[in-house]
Structures are given as C-alpha cells and as structure tokens.
C-alpha cells in the first residue's frame, strides 16, 4: 500500500467528512496502516481545523442600521411591485422551471424571452413600434455606430435624441470585438446592449430594457440577465485601454 493509492482530493474529502461510509472506511484503514498516508492526511485535517478556528475567531460584524433600512425598503418595494407590476418591465418568467445555479437553464430562459410578444429582449429588427407602447432606441439611432467605432470605454456621447455610454469592450468566444453600452434616449426606455463588429458593421447581439419610459426605474435583474448572456457567449475580460484602441482601429480598416 502506498500513498499513491488515494488522491489528495480523496484524502481531503475524508478529512472533511465528505466521503460515503464505504469509501471512508477504506481510506481510514489505509491511513491506519501507512504513516506516509497519515502525514499527507494531516495536511488536510490540519488546515480544516485552523480555518475553522479562524472562522470562529472572526470579530462580530453587525449589519449597519443604514444597510438594514435599505434592505427592508427594497423588500417592501419588491412586494409593492409584485402587487401592481406596473412600472417594472417584466423580467420574471414563472413558466421557466426553477432550476437555480444552471447557466443553461438561464440561457433557455433568455431564448424564451426572445419569443415573447412585447418581450424584454429586443433585436435590431424591433426598433420602434414594439407592442405595448415601449419605444426603444436601437442601433438605428443616428450617431451610435460612429460612437461604437470611435469612443473608448467610459466615454459618453450625444446621439440622435439621447446619450450613449460605452461600458466596456471585450472579445467573445469567436474572437469578435464586442462592446457593451447603455443608450439613454429621451422619452424612450433605457437599453443596455451588446453589439459585436462584423464585416458589415456593428450588429446588436443583445439588448435588455433597463428602465421604463416614464419612471426611469431600472430593475436590477436586467443586469443579471446581461451577466447570464455574457457568460453564455464566453465573453472575455474587458480589454485594457491600449488593447481596446488597437482593436477599434483594426476594426475600422
């Protein structure tokens, strides 16, 4: 019997009590018979003990009153929103089975949203005249393509009847240059969008309404939807300013 019979992961799971009884018994017998294996195990039981004591030694950290008040207000607002559901663009889709922690389930939810009449996600083709009276600024907005091609991330610029803020540049899994931006147009809903550079120009790949027309209320879940989308397309880290400038310059040629 040698230490190679059990991996570090197995020894660790044994130390953490995470093995099933049969395997735990096998590891226990091997450890009892092999001092080298017992020394290896001690690394894991030792770190477990030290970290547990460190966790217990953490100073008490009561939740500040101000934070508690904000959270309670948010819960109240959520309850009021659930009753009237008037000002919030509906992002909740009760028909999607609750399967938390599964990115694919979220991606499926996104695809479903695309198919909803008057849905949350709009492509370039929708533009104005979306059912339900929402008017949404899109890539057709005059000046937007130029802003996407020319502005560094963090910059804002005036477009047709509003303002665009460039949030970040990144490359997707296919290596295309993509830009995340927000479009705030007067008397239209604010849109958080991702456009990617194709040979023919910028193409909208994702858009989510982040604020209603009259209230400017931005449901936080719109950004969660964006996160899910970015994860689904394998979005890389934001490009550093120099890399971004080089990529934009290359895309414009």
């Amino acid at each position: 019997m040698t230490t190679n019979d059990f991996s570090d992961e197995t020894l660790m799971a044994y130390a953490d009590g995470a093995l099933d009884p049969a395997e735990a018994a096998r590891v226990g017998a091997a450890v009892a018979a092999d001092p080298a294996l017992a020394r290896r195990l001690a690394l894991f039981s030792g770190t477990r003990d030290v970290l547990a004591r460190a966790a217990a030694a953490r100073p008490e950290a009561p939740v500040p009153d101000a934070l508690m008040a904000r959270v309670r207000a948010t819960i109240e607002a959520g309850r009021a929103g659930a009753e009237t559901d008037a000002t919030v663009v509906p992002l909740r889709r009760p028909s999607v089975p609750p399967r938390p922690f599964r990115p694919m389930a979220i991606a499926a939810g996104l695809a479903l949203a695309l198919g909803l009449a008057g849905g949350v996600l709009v492509g370039l083709s929708l533009g104005d005249g979306v059912p339900g009276g929402l008017r949404i600024a899109t890539l057709g907005t005059r000046g937007l393509a130029e802003a996407l091609s020319g502005l560094p991330s963090g910059a804002r610029a005036a477009v047709a009847d509003g303002e665009v803020a460039i949030i970040a540049s990144f490359r997707n899994a296919d290596g295309e240059l993509c830009r995340e931006f927000e479009l705030d147009a007067a008397e239209r809903a604010t849109v958080v969008s991702v456009a990617c550079r194709e040979a023919a120009g910028w193409q909208t790949r994702f858009a989510v309404v982040a604020g209603a027309v009259d209230t400017g209320y931005a449901p936080a879940s719109s950004l969660e939807t964006l996160d899910s989308y970015l994860a689904a397309i394998g979005a890389g880290a934001p490009l550093a300013p120099l890399d971004e400038a080089a990529a934009l310059s290359a895309a414009g040629e």
């Binding site: 948010t74 909740r92 889709r93 609750p98 399967r99 938390p100 449901p219 936080a220 879940s221």
Partner: peptide, 12 residues
C-alpha cells in the same frame, strides 16, 4: 438583495 428579489421565482 435587489437581484435576489427580482429573481426569487428562480430560487428552488
């Protein structure tokens, strides 16, 4: 908290 409330129907 905001995101959790907005997404609560997805919590199992």
């Amino acid at each position: 908290v905001e995101r959790a409330i907005a997404a609560r129907t997805r919590f199992d």
